[in-house]
Write a protein that binds this DNA or RNA. Sequence first.
DNA 1: AACATTTACTAGAGCGCTCTAGTCACGAGC
DNA 2: GCTCGTGACTAGAGCGCTCTAGTAAATGTT
Lengths: 322, 322
Amino acid sequence: MEDVARVAGVSRALVSIVYRDAPGASEATRARVLAAGSELGYRPDHRARLLGRTRTRLLGVTFDVQAPFHGDLVEALYSAAEAAGYDLALSAVAPSRQESRAVQSLLDYRCEALVLLGPQLSPSALTALTESQPVIVVGRKVKATGVDVVRTDDMAGSRLAVEHLLSLGHRSILHIDGGKSSGAAERRTGYRNAMRHAGLSPLVQTGGRTEAEGADAAKTFLNDAPPATAVTLFNDRLATGFLDTIRQSLRVPQDLSVVGYDNTTISRLSHISLTTIAQNTAALAAETIAKAHTRLTDAPTAPTPPIPPTLVPRSTTSPPAS
Amino acid sequence: MEDVARVAGVSRALVSIVYRDAPGASEATRARVLAAGSELGYRPDHRARLLGRTRTRLLGVTFDVQAPFHGDLVEALYSAAEAAGYDLALSAVAPSRQESRAVQSLLDYRCEALVLLGPQLSPSALTALTESQPVIVVGRKVKATGVDVVRTDDMAGSRLAVEHLLSLGHRSILHIDGGKSSGAAERRTGYRNAMRHAGLSPLVQTGGRTEAEGADAAKTFLNDAPPATAVTLFNDRLATGFLDTIRQSLRVPQDLSVVGYDNTTISRLSHISLTTIAQNTAALAAETIAKAHTRLTDAPTAPTPPIPPTLVPRSTTSPPAS
DNA sequence: AACATTTACTAGAGCGCTCTAGTCACGAGC
DNA sequence: GCTCGTGACTAGAGCGCTCTAGTAAATGTT
């Protein structure tokens, strides 16, 4: 910085002004400083820059390195953060790297706020974190005091799935649920409500959350032979396993329409091409950054309603055979 | 820090010594300082700490947020880096966030070295980066001066696949290749060499890299009906699509054994359970950190041989029907 | 013409650490 | 009894920035 100042014939402070895009430098000088800077290959040291400032505008994000959905979210967070003038510090969670560890390392970097994607930490641990900075939990419905939650409206998601099938002409729609998995209750309720609202009686079969459970569910389905022309499943993994097995006996979508949930990478694969429910990552990200920003500037944030997901129609749904 | 010093009744320098685990403090004082620190909830500011030091011991890592393999690598890098006393700064690459952008942000944090996972940057761009700090490319075979490369031995991987099938008793083994995809040539050559070495004649069918191409390859295979009892494919995606279609006509592994490549998440799914070749992430990570360390301490590094992958036997391979 | 305001710039303290060069006391060695 | 280590500790500069307070000149106002 000193060098740039010398070459441009100005003070260090002026160089700082120019690189911060702050007012207080003439156009001519600005150009001269920038020229000197690029000649010397100068880049401001980000850490030193933050040191002297009260606001670091740094948001710490923990994410699961294995979850494709977290990947999508991180991407969306980058643009949302940039738009709001924030910077992101990533810290990965993995089997060999605990969430608490990931959080600690973010704390060392003096992040202004913590954004936790699908955290497994206990409510009390989350509340404890709140003492030093705002905490925003994304994608998990936690009840922890002082913690902001941004998540998808799973009830609405199930409703979308049912409505999509109704609009195609289906009347007998089965839901294969997620049992006790997190979010399963809400999706099941959403399905039930949507069915009742349409004057139809809900029909729920026990499922699970893995491909293997999906395959089992398919066997049960074939065995019981319920009068369903369409099935909505708890998630894409379950749906994939279900599809794999069911296709040995039935044609999809001609004999049976299938809707998943999550829009995972697998569901997008051309040979699976599963109709599914997608979380709105852009909206989730924007909401997250907005929440962080409010907490950091104003007073407390009001809880906001969950974000509606969208339907992604692919090749596993069609009108029922007449 | 000031506060901790005051409470413990020592100087700031002593607090620094204690928190750095540096020699020069008596056990009694050390305990007293630590007690004062935890009472006040003190954590050293990581950025400030690095500022005053010549060595930051910070390694910048770019990774693709969508690639599961990068997730595995990042995890392995964390432990390898920790063992060597380095810290990691992550920067994600995504469709909306270019690699150059990810690299720039790492540069702002004054990383000592750059670790790029499967970078798409041109060799010249990579070499340019070398000017400011060591650059280590992981998983991609690039020829760029001054850039260290750490990657998997794909020839050995193909050999493993072939040897596995040979040991099961197969003699007619077909390779469905990746065409012009990166790494495809090496895997094809590895297959050819292994076959010739066993005194068998190689047989290659054109494939691709996606599930759809795999499905096409399966149709071609069924049509041509080559006398193969086993197939090795360019990668897991191709293999998945291939399996999906082939299973409608043949039993796997009874009628046909199938080996993929990459050990992707998909291949691990219970209902697919694909025998495949896994890259050794721990070894790749260790090698990467070692390379970075050598560059940062000693003189130039000697190019090291690619790292041998391992075979992951699952349910798509068995002895051929007699 | 006298004063106020604005614009362009600088000096220097401060951010939270580390690190070098000390000081001081205590015991060993001659 | 004197020097010489050595271990425990401190003072203060410095890392690369930002930011407040201030100066000096140009412009506006009556």
